[in-house]
Design a binder for these strands. Structure first.
Length: 501
RNA sequence: GGUGGGUUCGUAUAACGGUUAGUACUCAGGAUUUUCAUUCCUGCAAUAGGAGUUCGAUUCUCCUACCCACUACCA
């Protein structure tokens, strides 16, 4: 959800300003490769209608070289691995980076040693002079190690005493002192791949990125990114940054996690996702949410239009979106509001579309070959009672099949005294009516019949509903009768007479 | 621990330094209805705490508290 929201804000911002929304896959950690993840992202964006107009192809085709449709190809960093090393070495040459030969074990030792002293180990100006790197080793030794070892890295040489001044589109001006930052690894010899920081800056530059809208977890890296643009001499074309607050769990503290959804019964993924462990997580799509509702809900989580309008189409969002209305604080996700949005969108849909979506649900429940026109009439009557299309069945199953049993509580409450007899008499009268069985006429006839006899309307009607629908709650009797028609009406009355007595 | 970010009803949010602090969701009542649902009406409920600036602070400044993120050869 958080990822979709970030993508959405990027999309809205880009489209509003006539820019391009580019999908780039940042897969520089070979150990964390997840099969199917990229295809999942593409499909999720497509379901949401948040379409990148440049980037990896939707069909997963591998684009190797730039072309008019793919001016900045390739778009997977794993396919771009060849370009990063030269940039990293340029920084070494210019004195902004250096080769580091410390093994993970050595660094681990440093960390635990610092911890036992109640301090935190930090690889920067304060410690790099006593560690094994090209700044402390001789030129010959460095050359030898570069040649003989395969696990060295290139680290950024964080300035010792600088105040890094930054601007964020959402948070305004921010300052951080460089002494609190560390010498981040930029490139790893072991897998010939850059880390996020290097790859991101190089690619953003090469791809002519003008705005970076990303999650708040990146804010602490922003000074490093500023310094990298500076070291490359690209500060004039540096993109503008906006750091979005996180999506928080509905109750308690902390960011939204997969667990929260499982526990409270709401999806946290746009689409159903099956992890490597075979565990399946719910998706908004599979749970019956409309993509428009999902997107609308996400848009309003951390942004507001400044008006009281709550329902926005994607196009309206493109028009209305503005970065200065984006909230700085994290937003707790509210599953009830998500449902409310779906309900609103459901009633906005026309009957034809809803009937089409209802058909498979009917088939699942053994109703095959339903007449589309009939289903449309049903849907028109019940759509305001539902949140999801799948609710239709619970609401209106008795418009497709005869009840086989009767709710015991309802029967005990209504099927007593002289009311059943009256209901049956009324039913007989209705059956005797010749001509058109339309709702208005049936309603008027029944009302007249009951009123002229001074019967209790509710009690009699509920007996009829019990006979027709198997329970006392539901649609109006005239609605039910006009829909199921005289034949089914007679049959159900007869069955009720036999079964309920 | 350090650094950075954040803080208005339970939740999402609104409010040129001047409002009875508004709206939506949820919840509770009521009206309408042949029941249920819808719809409509009403209600509950908030500026984290403390200083300061000001005639006046939700809004500006500082301190405190609390929350979050980061602090990897992950992104």
């Amino acid at each position: 959800m958080g990822g979709v929201r970030t993508a959405l804000y990027n999309y809205l911002y880009a489209r509003q300003r006539g820019g391009d929304f580019i999908l780039r896959i940042e897969d520089t950690d070979s150990r964390r490769f997840v099969p199917g993840a990229e295809a999942y992202i593409i499909e999720a964006l497509r379901w949401c209608g948040i379409l990148p107009n440049e980037g990896v192809d939707a069909d997963g085709k591998v684009v190797e070289t730039p072309s008019p449709e793919h001016p900045h190809a390739p778009y997977r960093q794993s396919q771009r691995r060849g370009i990063y090393r030269a940039y990293a070495e340029q920084l070494v040459r210019d004195g902004f980076a250096y080769y580091a030969f410390d093994s993970s074990e050595e660094l681990e030792r440093e960390r635990s040693a610092a911890e036992s002293r109640g301090e935190t180990f930090i690889y920067n100006a304060a410690s790099r002079q006593r560690l094994r790197n090209s700044l402390t080793l001789s030129e010959e030794e460095t050359a030898r190690l570069l040649e003989s070892q395969t696990d060295w890295t290139i680290r950024f040489r964080m300035p010792e005493d600088r105040v890094v001044k930054m601007d964020d589109l959402i948070r305004g001006h921010i300052e951080v002192h460089s002494s609190t930052l560390d010498d981040k690894v930029l490139w790893k010899r072991a897998d010939e791949l850059p880390t996020y920081h290097l790859a991101n800056i190089v690619d953003d530059h090469l791809m002519e990125i003008t705005e970076v809208i990303r999650g708040e977890e990146w804010l602490p890296s922003l000074p490093l990114h500023y310094l990298l643009y500076e070291a490359f001499g690209w500060q004039d074309s540096m993109p503008r940054f906006a750091h979005l607050s996180l999506l928080l769990k509905p109750v308690g503290n902390g960011k939204l996690s997969k667990r929260d959804g499982d526990k409270m019964g709401f999806p946290v993924f746009p689409l159903q996702w099956t992890g490597a462990d075979g565990e399946r997580s719910h998706g908004y799509r599979e749970d019956g949410y409309f993509p428009e509702a999902f997107v609308n809900m996400l848009a309003m989580l951390g942004w507001n239009p400044g008006t009281e309008q709550e329902l926005f189409s994607l196009e309206e969002l493109v028009q209305a979106f503005s970065m200065d209305k984006v909230q700085k604080a994290g937003a707790k996700f509210n599953p009830d509001k998500a449902k409310w949005y779906n309900k609103e969108y459901l009633r906005l849909k026309d009957e034809k579309e809803l009937a089409r979506l209802f058909l498979p649900v009917l088939e699942e429940n053994g109703v095959c070959g339903a007449d589309p026109a009939y289903v449309e009439r049903v849907v028109a009557l019940i759509k305001e009672r539902a949140t999801f299309v799948r609710d239709f069945w619970d609401i209106a199953w008795y418009l497709f099949r005869d009840p086989e049993s009767y709710d015991e509580k309802d029967a005990a409450k209504f099927w007593k005294e002289e009311n059943p007899a009256r209901a049956l008499e009324l039913a007989a009268h209705v059956c005797s009516l010749a001509g058109d069985w339309n709702k208005e006429r049936l309603e008027a006839e029944m009302e007249d019949y009951i009123r002229s006899r001074e019967w209790p309307m509710g009690k009699v009607m509920n007996c009829l509903r019990l006979a027709l629908a198997g329970r006392s709650s539901g649609l109006g009797i005239a609605d039910i009768a006009s829909l199921i028609g005289p034949e089914a009406f007679r049959r159900r009355i007869q069955t009720a007479k036999e079964k309920l007595g």
